[in-house]
Design a protein around this nucleic acid. Sequence first.
RNA 1: UGGGGAUUGGUGUAACGGUAGCACUACGGAUUCUGAUUCCGUCAGUUAAGGUUCGAAUCCUUAAUCCCCAGCCA
Length: 554
Amino acid sequence: MDDASDKPVSRNFIQQIIDADLAAGKNGGRVHTRFPPEPNGYLHIGHAKSICLNYGLAKEYGGKFNLRFDDTNPAKEEQEYVDSIVDDVRWLGADWEGRMFFASDYFDQLHAWAIQLIKAGKAYVCDLNAEEMRTYRGTLSEPGKDSPYRNRSVEENLDLFTRMTAGEFSDGARTLRAKIDMASPNINLRDPVMYRIKRAHHHRTGDKWCIYPSYDYTHGQSDSIEGITHSICTLEFENHRPLYDWCCRELGIHHPQQIEFARLNLSYAVMSKRKLLQLVQEKHVDGWDDPRMLTIRGMRRRGYRAEAVRAFCERIGVAKFNSTIEMAWLEDAVREDLNICAPRAMAVLRPVLVTLTNWPAGKTEVFDVPNHPQNPELGTRKVPLSGKLFIEADDFMEEAPKQFFRLKPGGEVRLRAAGIIKCDEVVKDAAGAVTELHCTFDPDHSRKVKGTIHWVDAATALDAPVRLYDHLFAVENPDDAPEGKTFLDNLNPSSLETITAKLEQSLATAAPGDRFQFERLGYFYTDPVDSRPGAPVFNRTVTLRDTWAKEKGR
RNA sequence: UGGGGAUUGGUGUAACGGUAGCACUACGGAUUCUGAUUCCGUCAGUUAAGGUUCGAAUCCUUAAUCCCCAGCCA
């Protein structure tokens, strides 16, 4: 992509469309995209795909990218959501260069255009209520019937629309409708609603309006006003494109091209705003930023970096096929990113005490340990050892299979960066559970030993809460629930486990937002909300690949 | 049901009438003071059936399956 190789770079279907438009001289060679969220919820990874797509295209073609809020329904929209969206889009790294707009910025213009359409005989005020309108609309297989109000005169429509605007009628009493075709096989064209009466306080326009334009009547014109060239949206709007085109055409304004792509689906996750909201409201998760949520805020708090999310969005591609990406892809992208930048440290999640029987009493040795095996620039840190230490319970097996090359009775294993220990004695409690291991320590580093394990010095260990996260859902497709069950029945009961871990001393100064690889375990994020100075709390971002666990599973 | 889309290895995604490629997974191996990382290799695919063509994932026909639309939501 960046070198002079003559290998053809593969282009997705949207890039191909833009290439063709540019070749044909469309839009004077401009490329201008936008991300148009409705401020009625928090952004999730599906939105990240759209943001990366739109922003990426603008950047690639030297064009522009706008952030525009589609705020035409005051009943659902709130400033809180606007703020969070702005913050999340910025975090992701998309730069709108000051072009942040609101559909509500265009309400006056939209209203003027509505009058223009009424005058042109293309719109009329309809007195049908919601239920009647549904009846008149027909069904998928039967055409609709014309509204009895369809042929009102321009003067009457103008008068009625003016009075609608002035607040003379009650909510839902009348609508302004586009006069298109009640017999159209595309239901969206059966005289769709342009304006509805709705007395609701708007987060930006306050109580100025009691009528609000519909999405269909707003979106294309908003794009048009902003000079958008390629209006990229998801597949479910494909059926709306004729209406999008109708608005721009009838108004005779700049006509952006709507292009639809398949929204993102991920295994072990749900993506619909409604379901995410339900998870939060019914407290199946701990808020929008619960690290198990695939909201941008959740991923942030989990410890994902924007780089990883972007790399993921790049990798999954763009197409019109409704696909489901494996969760492992996301996790891989996160590992790949963190592997490069996360300093290493040692922590023991499920400790077993080890006493070094030949350790000189009172002695403490301090090792200088590299923070990254492949990147010396990350420096070193001091790690003490003083005769008693913790190792991971999983790293000891009393009756170990041959392939197990960690610690076993009579066996040897390397203590990372310190030396080699040999297990001489296993101490058990009355119930037969292992409580302590007696080992001898050999400081000789040069010998080859098959296994290397992590450890934490007992004398200086720091106890800290660590949250171990797993998929929020136990099954690949949470929506696939049996009769009478819902996606909630597919929640993974062990998606969160909080433990108290033993951490190496250096971690006491971890700052909120710091990321580490706890060697052989995974990547961990210093929780920015719950951590206190000297008392960090860690969230497991993602585990390391574990081929041993896989082996065991066989 | 009328209409609109879609279908390429396990998962994604290219190939636009001329050798089905790439990535991830899986599997095997090498390196390794993280069973991590890194490196090498292997398996594996055009929804089906016809047709056009010297040649079809690509064009035509028929069929199958999946998704979207009957909000005064977006």
